[in-house]
Design a protein around this nucleic acid. Structure first.
Lengths: 353, 353
DNA sequence: CTGTTAGCGCTTTCAA
DNA sequence: TTGAAAGCGCTAACAG
């Protein structure tokens, strides 16, 4: 009897009518928390719903109850396995909590991050999880902060991954400590000469890792000569280009290239290989992040594990658990040695220095 | 004057009141299509909005207008670069059209695909794009079809990637043709003995590729001996395990392993390498998909390009362009030869056969 | 050009 | 236990 107009879903009203009950009863049967509906009616409603292939209208539900089932996820780039790993585990947690994930991409542009936050906010999501992790010029940072504060004021939960300079709950990866530890272990493997491929100066993560690494070298009594740090893009191509520049400038056998993230390290390995260098024998390479999909790379990449596969779900769980906002949660970093940095038996190098 | 209750965003009403205009004027100033608002008032509204850090409530807007700005995207696994590539390009198109992307994950389980569709449908998205591509038992397939049909009847657009057995618009990758062409080119490179690592029999894509490959061999006059096709999981680990089994059963130098997707091929390469075989010299490997993030693999993997990086945006654009539903859009496949299958100069092999 | 008003589909008091 | 009715925030007639 219900008119099937094109372009319009069946509503709860249609279901109620078909089941011969009131709107209220239909609602209670399908979504009601307290079940005070006679079983027979409930069955009628349910079968009417299936018959009409009815689906709750989330917008209407959200508007009425004032709480949506959405969570917003901001990543830099879906193709980057670093972000994929975070997104995958965040999605898992969200699903477990019965929430739906909306994604936004910044492409490494802080302006787009601001825009992403604005767009997500329109959905009134329960959580906004940003792994975009960008350092922005002061003015932009203020706008981002204002936007997120307004969102929190309205009852939303903000959680940031790796960005400790904003006043929101943050999963703070120990970039400095990881870098230092990596340096210490590499020195104890026998390495003495290092090159660093760093991201742009605006990137806090990269800078911290780099500084930690240098600190670790210093602590081991290994000075880092002038010009050993090269600034490049924080991407695969950045690593590739950086390594190319190192090769052109001349890189000796036995040197180790530390790229401040795995994706850069992969790019660097490619460049070295193309130049006929054999990574792991001739030149060593280390990265940072321990991206899971990179375990296939040969030789295996020495890197620093930051619990990437759990980062997203830890963030989501933290946000959903409703603990106090504004916390900084430390995420430890742990060195993972693989074949790209074998133990150096040949010690001639250290004598030469 | 507006009471700032916790847990509640500012509404258009607050903005209107602060600007001293009516609700309608406020709405028109911020979102109105026809601009018939005096500039001074509009400015007042806009500055009130920024002052209050107001954001449109999408749910309310969607409910009123009957059209949401959401698109739903169903993928098998976010970590799988095949799906990442599709998701990334789909997201790009969606953003260009001013739409927001909600993701759902099937994890290769058709039951979860059905559930994902149901959940997405609640958001009344403009498009549901499924790259989950699962073949399901008849009953489940019917439920999925019913769900998608109900969605289309309500005005939604369905688009499927690589699943030509459902009555919806589909981007149909030429799996068979790609497999055949690959076989032909490999034979002309001098390969004569082949092993195939196939996904489970329920997977249409894998089966088509495999059959195309065998057809190509047949056309080149190369018979495929009994037992040369191994069935395994359609994942990296499946490729790894399959290759392990091949190794255990004994695989000769000069043989070529065709894995029906790139991720499997990568797993197979790892297993071979671990067994001391040198891929590209000793044993050859070929895959299918040409996943962009796999260009770093050494040796470079011979594979079949299916325009992966554009698949998502082509699908999205097609769905948004409002063409007729139910089309099947062919996606050509193109062989990409790389170092994992070098030309075989040594012909002793072919003599021996 | 601006304001008033009627709902969109749903949940949830409040009565029956 | 069920139903009637109010209203979430917004937009789109319709008046003014």
């Amino acid at each position: 009897v219900a008119a099937k107009e094109r372009n319009s879903s069946t509503t709860l009203n249609d279901v109620a009518r078909l089941a011969g009950v009131s709107l209220a009863t239909a609602s209670r049967s399908l979504n009601g928390s307290d079940r005070k509906v006679k079983d027979e009616l409930r069955q009628r409603v349910i079968s009417a719903a299936t018959q009409l292939n009815y689906t709750t209208n989330l917008s209407a539900q959200a508007m009425k109850t004032g709480t949506s089932t959405a969570v917003g996820l901001i990543v830099g780039d879906i193709l980057d396995p670093y972000f994929s790993a975070i997104a995958a585990s965040a999605a898992r947690s969200a699903k477990a909590a019965g929430l739906t994930v909306t994604m936004a991409v910044t492409e490494g542009d802080a302006t787009r991050e601001l825009r992403a936050i604005r767009e997500l906010r329109m959905q009134r999501p329960r959580v906004i999880l940003s792994a975009g992790s960008l350092t922005a010029p002061a003015r932009l940072r203020e706008e981002i902060t204002a936007e997120l504060e307004a969102y929190e004021r309205a009852g939303g939960r903000v959680i940031l991954i790796r960005r400790a300079d904003l006043p929101f709950t943050t999963l703070a990866i120990d970039d400095f400590g990881g870098g230092r530890q990596l340096a210490v272990e590499l020195v104890s493997l026998g390495y003495r000469r290092f090159r660093i491929l760093q991201g742009p100066d605006s990137g806090r993560a990269s800078r911290d890792r780099c500084e930690g690494f240098i600190d670790g070298l210093r602590g081991s009594g290994i000075p880092l000569p002038e010009g050993a740090v090269l600034e490049t893009a924080f991407t695969r191509d950045g690593g590739y280009d950086g390594a190319r520049r190192l090769i052109d400038a001349g890189i000796d056998s036995g040197e180790l290239v530390f790229a401040t993230n795995d994706v850069m390290a992969i790019g660097a390995m490619t460049a070295l290989r193309e130049a006929g260098r054999i990574v792991g024998q001739d030149v060593a390479v280390a990265g940072f992040d321990d991206i899971p999909t990179l375990t296939e790379v040969t030789p295996g990449l020495t890197t620093v594990d930051v619990s990437l596969t759990e980062l997203g779900s830890r963030a989501m769980d933290e946000a959903l658990s409703g603990g106090s906002a504004g916390k900084v949660i430390p995420i430890p970093a742990r060195v993972v040695l693989r074949e790209s940095t074998p133990r150096r038996s040949d010690d001639s190098q250290s004598l030469g220095t």
